[in-house]
Design a protein around this nucleic acid. Structure first.
Lengths: 341, 341
DNA sequence: AAACAATAGTTAAGCGCTTTACGGTTAGTA
DNA sequence: TACTAACCGTAAAGCGCTTAACTATTGTTT
């Protein structure tokens, strides 16, 4: 392994000078600079990042902590889009990305604690969606720079970025109400409580209330994010009396299961049953019927989070006010007006 | 931030002793050990990993390099499963995982070179699937420990692990031939050439040859991994004369598109057209009709790769012979006997 | 021509940890 | 009892890099 010293010897300068050249510090003559760069080239020198990290007090690592809830984050399209956005920005801006997916309870995860306490990263991006598993306060108490994606309950709620779950859900529910549906089944997630899901449910509730529908009298079934669990939930909802004419589903993946189950039960979607999802996963447009759903800018969420964190680290700003990205109702073929009985 | 020195002072010993305690070196009295651990506890001490890395010459980072081909790796279910397997093992065994998805051409990617040359990781896991973008030789030339997932062209082909694309494809094609299909369309991927895809095509070719079918006279269309591209490819195949009665598709995602397109064209799958995929993505069982496909143990691929790499790093072994994991044909509803005209 | 500023490069002190070499004890053995 | 061997703990060097502090040179200003 070539070291700074070897480059310095070859270029006939001190190692401090080489360091200066490599970090673009001013006050190095063009001639020296050239000699140094030549030596670097010839020796194929690349700085030892561990040494640099120690000396500079910065690792150029960004930690990404995405707790796994029901399933691996690697099977959840939304989380992946976020991750994709994060990865792009972090790498473009010259940092490394270090991923951890601790199991619950997060606080007891070795990985998690190791990462936070060893300060092996310059900053952290947290997926903060579980009221019982909040990381921000712990991380903040270590004076660790971070950005939380989701909801968090620090006093000031700063450094948080999320999508507008509430209004997205509101629109979805309003859409069904506008189509004349009154008897609407809900597919939620349980028993683990998640901020985003609660907000979506709150959106449904308020929208339906505006249409004179009492959310609390509606049939509710809980899934666990998977397609299959959505199918099961729908089967359960179909037992309700009177049978729902529409279903609000808090995630797209479960909507797929619901549509399958509805078809298997001999129902035509949307004629007999309208279904609306949430997320707008890439697949949503390819299923039959194409899914009416709420689009959320997941990739942008990741990009923004990463950019904000790096801006903070690079002192371009200190903290930032909560950012809320808008959602959008996408009308496709899985919803239709209620048929008069 | 608490340092070793502070712990040492509090425990009334030298920092060397603290270091010994923390690394379980023998010859420390139970009493001293207890005092040290107490001080560690009280101060909430956690070692600075950058300093440790510098002193030990090991970072406990494992780099994962998955080049992005047509799309982000974050949208490819197979890659994700591999990643999931890798992540699980790496974290369980106390390492950190550092992910990079360089754009092509890989060799010119800054991220890629930075990671390889700075030796910031103890070892690398490479997704090696592109003949024109081979990384192993470059990495090996840096004396960097690595494991390649896929196909690579180092002389000895050691330290490679992959699935049995050839036999999986062979079985898929044989299945169609056994059902009486003679006129079979192929949905491949192009124009970028990939080892795994070539092997699958070779499997098709040999199986069909055994059944007396000349692969070269079969209609072929190329997609680009996405669902939509699969749909387009199928539309193209349907123009062939005579129209194929079955389609072999090199990936499941494109099979989904193909099924959709077939339906849109008024064809019944499998009655009018049999379709068989490759991968067995989670969704395969949930579509209509459920997809006949070839299952590959992607997660296990990732786990094995990670375990082998760590074994090498921990000197449990040096190199290993190529590992080939078996594939399995999964019969579902998208294939049926050919109808006599 | 004196005073100062800007430029170019060096020295040396760390960053926080690991580890070798070594001194001092204590126990075991002949 | 003397000698070895196993223990326990410390001092100090060093991993490879950065960066203040410093010297020396050249250029600029009045």
């Amino acid at each position: 392994m070539t070291t700074l010293k070897q480059v310095a010897d070859r270029a006939g300068v001190s190692s401090a000078t080489v360091s200066k050249v490599l970090s673009n510090t001013p006050y190095v003559s063009a001639d020296t600079r050239a000699r140094v760069l030549k030596a670097v080239e010839e020796l194929g020198y690349v700085p030892n990042l561990a040494a640099r990290a120690l000396a500079r007090g910065r690792t150029y690592n960004i930690g990404v902590i995405f707790p796994l809830i029901y399933t691996s984050i690697f099977t959840d399209p939304q989380t992946l889009s976020i991750l994709e956005g994060v990865e792009t920005v972090i790498n473009e801006r010259g940092y490394n990305i270090l991923i951890t997916t601790p199991k619950m309870p997060v606080q007891q995860s070795d990985q998690y604690r190791r990462l936070v306490q060893s300060r092996y990263c310059d900053g952290l991006i947290l997926l903060e969606n579980l009221p019982d598993e909040l990381m921000s306060s712990f991380v903040a108490s270590h004076n660790y720079p971070f950005v939380a994606i989701g909801y968090q309950s620090l006093e000031d709620k700063s450094n948080t970025i999320r999508i507008d779950d509430y209004h997205g859900a509101y629109q979805a529910a309003k859409h069904l109400a506008d189509l004349g549906h009154r008897n609407i089944g809900i597919i939620a997630v349980g028993p683990v409580s998640m901020f985003s899901i609660s907000e979506r449910l709150r959106g449904y509730r308020d929208a339906l209330a505006s249409a004179g529908i009492d959310f609390d009298r509606l049939p509710v079934a809980c899934g666990s994010f998977s397609i299959e669990s959505g199918a099961q939930a729908l089967r359960q909802l179909l037992k309700a009396d009177p049978r729902p004419t529409a279903v609000l589903c808090v995630t797209d993946l479960m909507s797929l299961g619901a549509i399958n189950a509805a078809k298997s039960a001999g129902l035509n979607v949307p004629r007999d049953l309208s279904i609306v999802g949430f997320d707008d996963i890439p697949l949503a447009i390819h299923i039959d019927p194409p899914l009416t759903t709420v689009r959320q800018p997941s990739r942008q969420l990741g990009e923004t989070a990463a950019n904000l964190l790096l801006d903070i680290l690079e002192k371009k700003q200190t903290t930032f006010d909560p950012v809320v990205l808008p959602t959008q109702l996408i009308l496709r073929g899985s919803t239709a007006p209620v048929r008069s009985a």
